[in-house]
Simulated assay, not measured.
Amino acid sequence: MNPRLGYRALRHGRVSLPGQLYLLTTVAAYRRPLFLNVDTARALSRCMCEGSCWGDASLLCWVLMPDHWHGLVKLGERDSLATVMNRFKSVTAKRLHCTQVGLVWDHGYHDRAVRAEEDVRAVARYIVANPLRAGLVSHVLDYPYWNCVWL
């Protein structure tokens, strides 16, 4: 089976709505644990917090796992979801190429629009608790690669 068909299916029905919140996930190329390397994880974390990554979108919450990334992003008025994710991947990959990691991100990403009736802070807690659920730490505050605007 062609793995690209899965990415096409993810794009089917994808809608970019200005002001909409999206729970996003993207994985490292070949699902390699690139971000176990402290220098790589720190470089990506610093880069991700720069405005050049997001255009007119807002990054509200994120966690960088050893082989993937989760984020809560609010779209702005100008850029589509695809534009925002392409920019994020491009800017972070260019920054990491100086660390000689090779290909950084896999193709595609997963998105889920956060419904208006959902508790946005609960979604953010879900995101930052990923390292805890994965058994990487025993307390969320012990994991260094995450941030949330509600702190």
Rank of each mutant, 00 (worst) to 15 (best):
C148P: 03
D39E: 15
L81Y: 03
V73I: 14
S52I: 13
G76L: 08
V137C: 06
R31M: 06
W146L: 12
D111Y: 03
T83F: 07
A113E: 06
F35P: 02
F35G: 01
Y22F: 11
R115P: 03
P18K: 07
V114G: 00
G108T: 09
G13L: 09
T40C: 05
D39N: 13
H70S: 02
G51E: 12
L5A: 14
E77W: 09
N86W: 05
L151K: 07
G108A: 03
H107E: 11
R4N: 15
N37A: 11
A29D: 12
M1S: 14
L23S: 04
E118S: 13
R87L: 09
R87D: 09
R8W: 08
R14A: 14
P131N: 09
R14N: 09
L36M: 15
L81E: 06
R31Q: 12
G51C: 05
S90N: 09
R112W: 05
A93E: 06
M48E: 03
R95W: 03
L151C: 09
R4E: 13
L103R: 15
L44S: 04
G13P: 05
P66W: 01
I127R: 00
R125Q: 10
D39V: 11
A41T: 06
T83C: 10
H107R: 14
V128N: 01
V15S: 04
G76N: 06
H12D: 08
L64W: 01
M85Y: 06
Y22D: 02
D79E: 12
E77A: 15
Y30E: 15
R46T: 15
P66N: 04
N37L: 06
F35R: 00
L141Q: 10
R112Q: 08
M48F: 08
T40P: 01
L132G: 06
D142R: 12
D142M: 03
T99E: 11
H139N: 05
E77C: 09
K89M: 11
P18F: 07
E118V: 08
S16E: 10
G13C: 13
P131T: 11
L23A: 11
W54R: 00
L59I: 07
V27N: 07
R11Q: 15
L21H: 14
R121K: 10
C53W: 10
M48N: 03
D39A: 15
V123S: 02
V140A: 01
V101Q: 05
S16Y: 09
A57K: 00
D79A: 08
A134N: 09
E50N: 13
H70N: 04
V27I: 13
T99V: 08
